[in-house]
Design a protein around this nucleic acid. Structure first.
Length: 1127
RNA sequence: GCUCGGGUGGUGGAAUUGGUAGACACGUUGGACUUAAAAUCCAAUGACCAUAACCGGUCGUACGGGUUCAAGUCCCGUCCCGAGUACCA
């Protein structure tokens, strides 16, 4: 009886479907899941494209299927679901071209995907399938969006919280003490102010705190196509499709405040079992860098003609001018404690008028009551540098100016506000009214408000990871797009600067990055003041400074940064060495060695990197011109797409303010449109929907007209849709909840607490590495958010993750002589004037010979082509009238990504038809390590196919090939069936646990080869063997299992347990080596001692022959391993 | 440039804590069976040298060094390939 894989596979696929063999049990003990440990094994769900699956797609699914089946044998309750990421661009693109609704296209594609997957025999629990484009699914995507909208991030608790709790704080104490992740430009307000804000104003402020918010974002707008393009849809500044110009345009779009989670996303990587390279990718993407932000004040333009760099400012009015600017700036950015105290002192609340951040002589006092000559200072962290300065300052204020100074720490102000206030009141009462108040006030004004020119007041914020090198700053560099550029540029430099900006704007960001070598930039004519030395520093613009990173401005330290160094050399700017004993004549010194000390750095002299960092940050904080800061590269994620085929936002706009529609009205279904293109006015496709307004009273979607006619006011709904990653950021939780028909509550919850607590997170996740910085980061972000809001019990979604490598196609090329319709066989190519052309791989046999007739019939232009064969002769179709396959025309082969356009796609259906699903599964695993990229070569599949045939034969060794398994003890004695079986059990078990499927298959091959040689028919061996093979080749295993007399599916059988007693060895064939080179082997008992082994080896005649009379210098004996004799 | 992987026969790939390099397959060659083909089975298959044949010898895991009784494996340096990322301040 032959191995008839076609009927066997069809039979068992039907059986599994009908019996729902792989349905995961529900968590409750009564339903069977309770006693078993849960194991959640997940594949990244596919986007169902029109092209169907090729053999590369199922690779990961096969691996996860093997693990799932293995875990079931091991007694786990396995959840192994599958679904479709079915919103996406291709279906929409197809809709634009053909008018076919994307839902229809998607449904068809899904049906094809399902059909193809079913043929491979996966053990998916299809009852839990999800489709992201299904309204019953995206209802919950919208619901999670609303949850994000209703949340803010509390930095103190380091978690997301309900926005209602924030509103409560605002109305009771304002926002001065709120430590939240929010828009940088958020104003500070009191409770009183908040309560008096209009509702619009309140909503506007809340939007700055919400985890999903509307913001002006720059997009690539293509007017000709009427759409927004992704970065990789733009080539050389024009659209990839059509080549139309693309411009940067600001649009109001939804964003996700993922940046709030940057640190937790980084830290979370420590506790999950992902490959180091993928973790590294995410770490890079998050891009944490620790340093400081430093404020440089822009100096007012000087009347001097020279305008050269390095000129010192000396005039007193300049200093006071900048002092006032600084005071103004500090008022705008109070510390928490300052804001809190100011709230209590302002508006004569305690009887006397106070001013905040007020200049007194050459200092700025935090708070001052001029009439009582009382100064109140709030201190940050206490450190030596500051203490010295404080003392000096206090002395001056006291003795020369007659001020009294009160000091409080941040802590006192924040935590004992009452005591602080009473102390201030007490002091005020003790102080006499200053009779000179009026006079001194006048004096002050004289100093503070210099007459004449406007002194500006601009500041440049920079982020640096090396604030310790601040004394090495010799110039500043701004991104050409920096907002201050036009403002600070001097009239003389205006022309040059504008020309430069124009020139860089032409080049796309990509081009700028690609072209690293050329150094360009231009001087603005303006200067900034060094925070410590007060030197004037020239401000340049240069396109190596990126607007999108940090603040778009750098303090250039040529001696410590190679780019700054190159820039300085190129424009002949000064390079100041601040590293003791370091040569910087050739390149910058970027090291951070402990031994390297700073010099030429004022109070940092003699310190190393680490010490200087601490001290300089403290000093910057003290003078109010900087602070320690951690910067992340991770930007908030834009969440709006100007597309049709995606989740609609559950949002409508009332007076321009976004409101979410009530939860009970979800899902907000996609409206019908007559066309899938943007509107003529450039609105997204949803702008074409007739019914797309929200009726707040009746809580339903209506057309705009309905509103006007029935006198019910309606509001426009959001026209954008969500991006592809919305639905995929939480789908793994959805699978946990069974279908409604199975008693699940998918209509009531996104997943029930019971299910979430039982399955926890995904134990094993398999998918491609291309999702490293997209899906995998967003899914972690949403999971952490859902955890914060107590909606899920875990804060990492995927415990272990494996990236399967790509299966490459073996493209075939033929060579055509340029200008002639003549093809040349591969090895005859000498000249360069040939072009290579992809040919369909189906025309090529395993010897790389081309079926010339098939090729000629492929395309009309090849019909009359001539072919020079390998032997140099011209191909004559009459000599090979039946289209003899190729014969002597050799093609060139190369591994490339499988793609239709390269004609190298291999379809799994064809393989299943010819060799069977079990062969396909085994071959894909046998190709090589799962995570590695490897070329597909169909010819090799005969290896595993033969193995399955051999396996079949092993169970059908009857005289006429009939099934023959008996209860006789295994033949072969101690070297027999049980020994090889248990060796294999050990190897296969270990290898599956390590995801080394290629080696487990080779172990199974060795096993079957040996048992065949032994003519094993013993049930004691063959029954466990069937289970061993079942995860890999489930169909044949089921068939054999049934023939062995079982009525239940083999998936219920326990995995064989390795027993050491069957594989114990008594002897070992020792390799005997001389000077490390093995010369022969010698079989010795394993029980021998070192000495006994040495003795029997030395006395052996072959040893003596090798020694040839010489005496061994040394004999190394490693019992159980090797013997080495040194001569 | 940086980060992370890699580099082993004609091919895909094995090789545990350093201990017989090339498991298992594909391909190739020869043979058996067959009118023939397919299928199946048997044998050989890293390179080179040697021999009538055996016995055998030398070299071999990208390259150059090193540690060790012993290195594909550990260390140092160099080259190449792949992936990710990028004027990240």
């Amino acid at each position: 009886m032959n191995y008839n894989f076609i009927s066997i596979e069809a039979k068992w696929q039907k059986y599994w479907a009908e019996n729902q063999t792989f349905k995961a049990a529900s968590p409750s003990p009564s339903k069977g899941g309770g006693q078993k440990r849960p194991f959640y094994c997940l594949d990244m769900f596919p986007y169902p494209s029109g092209a169907g699956l090729h053999v590369g797609h199922p690779l990961g699914y096969i691996a996860s299927d093997i693990v799932s089946r293995y875990k079931r044998h091991k007694g786990f309750n396995v959840l192994h679901p599958m679904g479709y990421d079915s919103f996406g661009l291709p279906a929409e693109q197809y809709a634009i071209q053909t008018g076919q609704h994307p839902a229809v296209t998607t449904k068809e594609n899904i049906a094809r995907y399902r059909q193809q997957m079913d043929k491979i025999g996966f053990s998916f629990d299809w009852s839990r399938e999800v489709r992201t484009s299904d309204p019953e699914y995206y209802k919950w995507t919208q619901w999670i969006f609303i949850k994000l909208f209703e949340s803010w991030y509390d930095k103190n608790q380091d978690k997301a919280r309900d926005i209602e709790e924030l509103i409560a704080v605002f109305s009771s104490e304002g926002n001065a003490n709120v430590n939240a992740v929010c828009d940088e430009k958020t104003e500070i307000f009191t409770a009183e102010k908040w309560n008096n804000f209009s509702e619009e104003k309140q909503q506007e402020i809340l939007l700055k705190y919400r985890l999903t918010y509307l913001a002006e974002t720059e997009v690539n707008w293509c007017p000709a196509l009427g759409t927004v393009l992704a970065n990789d849809e733009i080539v050389n500044g024009v659209s990839e499709r059509g080549g139309y110009p693309v411009e940067r345009k600001k649009m109001k779009q939804w964003s996700m405040r993922i940046s709030a989670y940057a640190e937790r996303l980084l830290q979370g990587l420590e506790k999950i079992d992902w490959t180091e390279s993928l973790k590294e990718t995410q770490r890079n993407w998050i891009g944490k860098s620790v340093g400081a932000s430093v404020v440089f004040k822009v100096l007012p333009p000087t009347p001097s003609k020279g305008g050269g760099a390095g000129k010192r400012l000396t005039g007193k009015s300049d200093i006071i001018g900048t002092l006032l600017d600084r005071a103004k700036k500090m008022r705008k950015n109070p510390t928490k404690a300052e804001a809190a105290l100011w709230n209590e002192l302002r508006n004569k609340k305690i009887g006397n008028k106070f001013r905040q951040q007020h200049p007194i002589d050459k200092y700025i006092a935090d708070f001052v009551c001029l009439s009582k000559k009382l100064i109140i200072e709030i201190d940050g962290e206490i450190h030596q540098y500051q203490l010295d300065k404080d003392l000096e300052r206090e002395l001056l204020l006291k003795e020369k100016k007659g001020f009294k100074v009160l000091r409080f720490t941040n802590n006192e102000v924040l935590n004992n506000r009452f005591e602080v206030l009473s102390k201030i009141k007490k002091t005020l009462n003790e102080l006499p009214f200053d009779v000179h108040y009026r006079k001194s006030k006048e004096n002050m004004s004289e100093h503070v408000l210099p007459s004449g020119e406007d002194l500006g007041g601009d500041e440049i914020d920079v982020f640096t990871t090396r604030p310790d090198t601040i004394f090495g700053v010799t110039f500043m560099n701004l991104a050409p797009e920096h907002e201050l550029v036009s403002k600070i540029t001097t009239p003389e430099q205006k022309e040059a600067v504008e020309a430069y900006i124009k020139q860089t704007a032409k080049r796309s960001e990509r081009e700028r990055m690609a072209d690293v070598k050329s150094i360009t930039g231009v001087f603005t004519g303006a200067f900034a003041e060094h925070p410590f030395t007060k030197e004037a520093i020239p401000i340049w613009i240069g396109d190596y400074v990126l607007a999108g990173y940090g603040t778009g401005a750098v303090m250039a330290v040529p001696c410590g940064d190679q780019r700054d160094y190159d820039f300085a050399k190129h424009f002949d700017l000064p390079i100041k060495n601040i590293f003791e004993g370091v040569d910087i004549s050739e390149e910058a010194y970027t090291g951070k060695e402990v031994e390297t000390k700073l010099t030429n750095s004022d109070f940092l002299n003699g310190l190393n990197y680490e010490q200087a960092m601490k001290k300089v940050i403290a000093a910057l904080e003290e003078i109010g011109q900087g602070t320690g800061k951690t910067n992340y590269r991770l930007r908030d994620a834009v969440f709006s797409r100007q597309r049709y085929w995606g989740e609609p936002f559950p949002v409508y706009y009332k007076n321009g303010i976004p409101h979410t529609i009530p939860e009970e009205c979800l899902p907000l279904k996609l409206p019908e449109v007559e066309k899938y293109l943007p509107t003529e006015t450039g609105e997204p496709p949803l702008g074409r929907a007739e019914k797309w307004h929200w009726d707040e009273i009746n809580q339903k979607v209506v057309s705009k007209k309905a509103g006007t006619s029935s006198a019910v006011e309606t509001y426009p709904l959001e026209l954008n849709t969500m991006p592809g990653w919305a639905g995929s950021s939480w789908y793994f939780f959805r699978y946990m909840e069974p279908a409604i028909s199975d008693g699940g509550k998918r209509d009531e919850v996104f997943a029930s607490k019971e299910a979430l607590n039982y399955w926890k997170n995904v134990d094993l996740y398999i998918g491609g590495s291309e999702h490293g910085t997209g899906h995998l980061l967003y899914a972690r972000f949403w999971t952490k958010f859902l955890k914060d809001r107590n909606l899920v019990p875990v804060d990492e979604p995927f415990q272990k993750l494996i990236n399967q490598g790509m299966i490459l196609g073996e493209s075939a090329f033929v060579f055509r002589i340029e200008g002639e319709n003549k093809f040349v066989s591969k090895n005859l190519i000498e000249e360069k004037n040939v072009q290579s052309i992809h040919t369909d791989v189906s025309f090529v046999n395993i010897h790389n010979e081309l079926d010339i007739e098939a090729f000629k019939n492929w395309r009309p232009e090849f019909k009359d082509a001539e072919f020079i064969l390998e032997n140099g002769e011209l191909y004559d179709s009459n000599s090979f009238p039946l289209g003899r396959p190729g014969g002597d025309f050799i093609v060139h082969r190369e591994s490339e990504k499988m793609s239709k356009s390269k004609y190298n796609v291999v379809n799994p259906d064809d393989i299943c038809e010819e060799y069977g699903a079990d062969s396909l599964r085994m071959y894909e695993m046998f190709l090589g390590p799962l995570e590695q990229a490897k070329p597909w070569n169909t010819a090799g599949i005969t290896g595993v196919h033969n193995f399955l045939k051999k396996l079949w034969k092993l169970y059908h060794s009857g005289p006429n090939g009939e099934f023959l398994v008996n209860d006789l003890p295994p033949s072969g004695g101690t070297e027999g069936g049980l020994k090889i079986l248990h060796k294999t059990i050990k190897k296969v078990t270990e290898d599956i646990e390590n995801f080394s499927f290629n080696t487990s298959i080779s172990a199974l091959m060795i096993c079957v080869n040996e048992l065949s040689a032994q003519k094993c028919t013993s049930r004691e061996v063959l029954e466990p063997l069937a289970v061993l093979i079942a995860p890999f080749a489930p169909h044949i295993a089921e068939e054999l299992w049934k023939k062995l007399g079982h009525s239940e599916s083999i998936s219920t059988a326990a995995f064989p347990i390795y027993e050491e007693k069957f594989v114990v060895e008594n002897t070992k064939k020792y390799p005997i080596s001389f000077n490390g080179k093995v010369k022969f082997t010698l079989e010795l008992s394993l029980g021998l001692s070192k000495e006994e082994i040495e003795e029997s080896v030395i006395s052996n005649e072959r040893t003596q022959k090798q020694l040839d009379g010489r005496n061994p210098k040394k004999v190394i004996v490693v019992p159980g391993k090797i013997v080495n004799i040194v001569v």
